[in-house]
Design a protein around this nucleic acid. Structure first.
Lengths: 342, 342
DNA sequence: ATGAAAGCGCTAACAC
DNA sequence: GTGTTAGCGCTTTCAT
């Protein structure tokens, strides 16, 4: 059942059926009605593949993320998907599982797919393999939008959050509460969020004239297990910190795991301010002061940026004049876990 | 840059290039090397769209889920995606947002896409619109696999969990702990999980000769807000239950929210056994006894089932002889929240 | 307003 | 082993 069958049945040419299907104005009303009737009768459904091949374009976009199970990513994905749906795009979802080789392979596969645009949360800032592939893709007229994480020295549009400011504010909250011995469990430092949040931490300390202590800086790699270890290292220091700033939701979880296991209580043994909300915890005894951000909206924004690129493309072929970066604002939610304890 | 350019450059026919690209044996080794060299030089990437159109098949599958943000769904999605990736399929992800019209619309859109198979967590058991669309799709040689939720009186393959047995076991755990006044916050009863878990609850009570009390049965619709209200209704009964069985992760969350707000403590004011694990809670004071299940594996299984259908299709065209249903086993994790309190 | 025909990039049956 | 050629289903000039 194709466009020829319909044309035949309706006694018109395939071109006319095509016009009807695509809402072209140049069709007599009578003809249109006739064709539409046949289409309805025969339950004809146009084949997008053929259309895409013919016009050299598609309505498919690709989204790559390191870890779909992480609530942060699923929330961002939700926003992205809703917006895509709204614009009529289909989205190919790919999980890179924090593995660079997988990321590369997927990027290579994608080239075959006639994708209209791509949104990616890259695994690493620094990885050349990913950077080169993305550049080649963009050079090929396929817009790339970075999400949450950056690619160093690149020319891609991106949607990020105010990680620096947010972290700074979070640490300031601890300082205001009276803390002087403030540690940080950093995230993966080969990512923008990891670096920026660390930078925010340092800034806050510096502004308050608190000397930065090397032993108070440990790396949790944005992973739960690593953050558990990091927390352990922190708590085993003789002159241990009175407060910890955690760099992400999984960082916080690893930290909490250590605290619970060792029967250490927030508000008695340690204070905490965390980056990113952990929704489920709100119904427990653990009330965390967190740096929250509009995650769903970040997903939406990424797709909006892509859409903007599609629109621009028609106006000024091939000319990327500006690199657009959208920064969504973090917000501190104070719940008490920052309180100073001796 | 297409197959003709490469053929030209290599001094062979497009057919030969096609053979090389697709690993066809009937190519002289010398020729293959020559072609491969040109492909490498010119960075030629075959166009899947054209291939798909030509062979009338694709490597794309579609996945529809009601709510991507729900950790249950993201975990299932993770399994699905990893397996798809392993088999070399691309997956189109669609969020139905618990809206039937959206589900229908997406199903209609999909028909245009030349999808190889479809995995769906349908919103409702009973909805005719979805059932009819899926039947039409399957009649069109596109295998459909149901995941977690069923479609009544349908002939689709499916992957589910042992909801009935799991719930029964959960309630039995409460009974063993000494409870007689056991309530349930049910899930959406137009879904298999909702109904089966409810059935498991009733079975456990019956086996223990405990009379079922209407006022102890409230509906939380698998939603947090509704479950909050449901819990409230339960706790305001004069002769209130000593234990609650919750039917899903969001049900549990709604319940916890009410308990916290009213300063009711598990193990003092109420006992709890819950369906589905809530990972984040493990690091808090709330240690829930839960009916856990292999969620990631359910996602994998759905794709395996699809793959099996693809393989079969070649052997016995058009003949669906068996309807395959894979049941993954739940497992009770006892953590103390079931303990009897007066 | 409509139709004829070429073409999007690839595959596969057939011929040699 | 390799080439020729006719599609796959749709769009889009270019005529009329």
């Amino acid at each position: 059942m194709n466009i020829y069958d319909i044309a035949m049945e309706a006694g018109v040419s395939p071109a006319t059926v095509s016009r009807v299907v695509n809402g072209n104005k140049n069709v007599k009303d009578e003809t249109r009605k006739k064709v539409l009737k046949i289409i309805e009768e025969k339950k004809y459904v146009p084949n997008s593949l053929a259309r895409n091949l013919s016009v050299g374009d598609s309505q498919n976009i690709a989204f790559l993320a390191p870890d779909i199970e992480n609530p942060f990513f699923s929330k961002i994905f939700h926003g992205l998907l809703d917006t895509a749906n709204q614009y009529g795009y289909n989205v190919f979802m790919y999980g890179t599982n924090d593995d660079l080789l997988t990321e590369h392979r997927i990027l290579d596969e994608i080239k075959k797919e006639m994708i209209k645009g791509i949104v990616i949360i890259p695994i690493s800032d620094k990885d050349k393999g990913t950077a080169e592939r993305l550049e080649k893709i963009q050079k090929n007229q396929i817009p790339v939008v970075l999400l949450d994480r950056d690619i160093c020295q690149s020319d891609f549009d991106g949607v990020f959050s105010t990680d620096y400011e947010g972290a700074c504010e979070g640490v300031q909250c601890l300082i205001r509460a009276g803390h002087k011995k403030i540690a940080i469990i950093t995230g993966e430092l080969d990512t923008r969020p990891g670096r920026e949040r660390f930078r925010g931490y340092k800034k806050a300390l510096k502004d308050a004239d608190i000397k930065q202590r090397t032993e108070y800086i440990v790396n949790g790699m944005f992973k739960e297990a690593e953050s558990y270890d990091a927390c352990k290292r922190l708590m085993e220091i003789d002159d241990r910190p009175t407060a910890i700033f955690t760099s992400s939701n999984l960082t916080t979880l690893g930290c909490l795991k250590y605290l619970k296991k060792n029967n250490l209580k927030i508000g008695r043994d340690i204070s905490l301010v965390c980056f990113d909300e952990i929704r489920e915890l709100q119904y427990s005894d653990i009330c965390l002061t967190v740096v929250d951000r509009p995650i769903y909206e970040m997903g939406c924004a990424a797709l909006e940026l892509l859409e903007y690129n599609f629109l621009m493309e028609n106006k000024m072929k091939n000319e990327r004049i500006v690199k657009k970066t959208n920064l969504l604002k973090t917000k501190l939610i104070v719940r008490g876990s920052e309180k100073y304890v001796v």
